[in-house]
């Protein structure tokens, strides 16, 4: 799993590449929690190159979403592949995460 982070304005962009499973999820959790500790509360996670997600990956996203919500922030996701989106739907995660077709659309949604 490759995780890249950069910040533009008030939004922190994370891009994920590879598999988010029980082995790699702790890396994302570390990174996400460190960023939240450093006062970053609005995230866009670009999943264009995310090939796989298991419940371990969903758990990390949920932990992050709860933390940022306490600070009025949000984690939004963009570019989910069809099979990843299906896992989100089955898990009931489409009701708690905003999903966008592009990172630009996700970014615009923060502005409104």
């Amino acid at each position: 799993m490759e995780i890249n982070a950069n910040k533009r304005g008030e939004i922190t962009f994370l891009s994920l590449k590879g598999k988010l499973d029980s082995v790699t999820s702790p890396n994302l959790e570390d990174k996400l929690l460190r960023l939240i500790d450093d006062d970053n509360y609005n995230f866009i996670i670009d999943c264009a190159e995310l090939d796989y997600i298991s419940s371990a990956g969903l758990r990390v996203l949920l932990v992050g979403a709860k933390k940022v919500k306490a600070k009025d922030g949000k984690i939004k996701l963009a570019n989910l592949k069809r099979h990843i989106k299906e896992v989100f739907e089955i898990a009931g995660f489409t009701a708690i995460f905003e999903l966008y077709d592009t990172t630009e659309a996700a970014e615009a949604s923060f502005g409104s």
Binding site: S55, L58, R59, L62, K66, K69, I90, A91, G92, I96
Partner: peptide, 24 residues
């Protein structure tokens, strides 16, 4: 069965793996 309709604050991760298996 996991309750999928809980709001974010109450959402639990336990049992989600098994739920995915049952659905898939």
């Amino acid at each position: 069965e996991v309750d999928l309709d809980l709001p974010l604050e109450e959402k639990q991760i336990g049992g989600l793996g098994i739920h995915l298996v049952k659905k898939l």
